[in-house]
């Protein structure tokens, strides 16, 4: 008899979206077409970076830089997916610590090199090092910042090698976990992490809106500073002149995710198209232009276009899926 009641209850409570959106299919598509290929690319290119450092540092730094830029590009394709395997063991934190608001990265690198810290020569020990000296951002200092490139420390290549190895290990571990069950678990949504397909979709939706918010608020907002006081030195990866490129790559990745989640919603896609056109037309690789009025206006327009796209997502996609975004790391101060 209670079984009968439960059926009655569940009919009463059946959510409206059930007839419209096939949630397991959405999750399957995102996992197979967006997440897995993204992490495969990251794992492959990170392994190549590790090899390039081993074989070409210091004789052929151009080859190292090429491999570095390709691997960093791959990270930008997945940097918005901060959950599950990338959260486990703090892997994403160890791959990408930015923004570094208190200048920990150069300080930590300098002290590792000065002390000839044993971690430089031991990948296992290196995992205990501060995240300020692990991942793509400190590697940029070693490759592009004059503090480390002019009269380089004798241990620079060893430090880069252990850093690249660490990047490759973390990338491989994330991919392995996705392949070995996390993807399946997310699709099935019959477990304590995802109790229903709706929860898996909410996780993906949160990744999308957080990714857009981070690009508008942090990647662009930090160098913009205030009108009176622009802060070009705060631009992400400005030393390798990747700031503008990161905005482009993250928008492209989020556009794909949005398109899969919304089953090609044209209004949302037009929002992305507009923002991507603005960033492509911008000729300001390190956002140094925020210091001039002209330059600032262009970056502001880009920020506006991204915020608008996020609003479109909230207006069209959220209600269509019957969900709102969960909490994210930007909720704090």
């Amino acid at each position: 008899m209670w079984k009968y009641c439960l059926i009655l209850y569940s009919l009463l409570l059946a959510p409206a979206y059930a007839q419209e959106v096939d949630m397991p299919k959405l999750v399957t598509n995102v996992v197979n077409e967006h997440i897995l290929p993204g992490y495969e690319r990251l794992a492959t290119r990170s392994a190549a970076l590790s090899k390039a450092v081993e074989t070409s540092c210091p004789d052929n730094l151009d080859a190292v830089k090429l491999a570095y830029n390709e691997a960093f590009d791959a990270w930008m394709g997945v940097s918005h997916l901060r959950f599950g395997p990338s959260e486990d063991n703090n892997r994403a934190f160890a791959l990408a610590f930015w923004p570094d608001t208190r200048g920990f990265t150069p300080k930590t690198l300098a002290s590792l090199l000065t002390d000839n810290d044993p971690a430089i020569h031991d990948a296992e020990k290196f995992t205990t090092v501060s995240i300020a000296a692990r991942g793509f951002y400190p590697m940029e200092f070693l490759l592009y910042d004059t503090q480390f490139t002019e009269e380089p420390a004798p241990q620079r290549c060893d430090l880069m090698a252990v850093m690249a190895k660490d990047i490759a290990n973390n990338s491989a571990a994330i991919l392995r976990d996705w392949q070995a069950g996390y993807g399946e678990m997310m699709i099935k949504a019959d477990n304590d992490i995802y109790r229903a397909p709706e929860e898996a979709v909410r996780q993906l939706y949160t990744a999308l809106t957080t990714g857009l918010q981070f690009t508008a608020q942090t990647r662009l907002g930090r160098p913009m500073g205030s009108f009176e006081k622009p802060r070009p030195n705060r631009a992400e990866a400005r030393r390798s002149e990747r700031s503008q490129r990161h905005v482009l790559l993250s928008l492209q990745a989020n556009r794909q995710l949005a398109s899969l989640l919304s089953e090609n919603d044209e209004d949302i896609d037009r929002g992305f198209e507009r923002a991507i056109r603005i960033v492509e037309d911008l000729d300001d690789p390190a956002f140094a232009g925020v210091g001039s009025i002209q330059g600032r206006i262009r970056v502001e327009a880009l920020q506006g276009a991204i915020t608008l796209t996020n609003d479109l997502v909230a207006e069209y996609l959220g209600p269509k899926l019957g969900i709102s975004a969960g909490f994210n790391a930007l909720d704090g101060d």
Binding site: F104, S130, F327, A329, L330, G332
Partner: peptide
């Protein structure tokens, strides 16, 4: 989430700072 688990606790731990 964002404030206590993230900014205040995990980040400090991972920066050893």
């Amino acid at each position: 989430y964002g404030e206590q688990a993230g900014e205040r606790m995990r980040l400090g731990l991972m920066l050893n700072d």
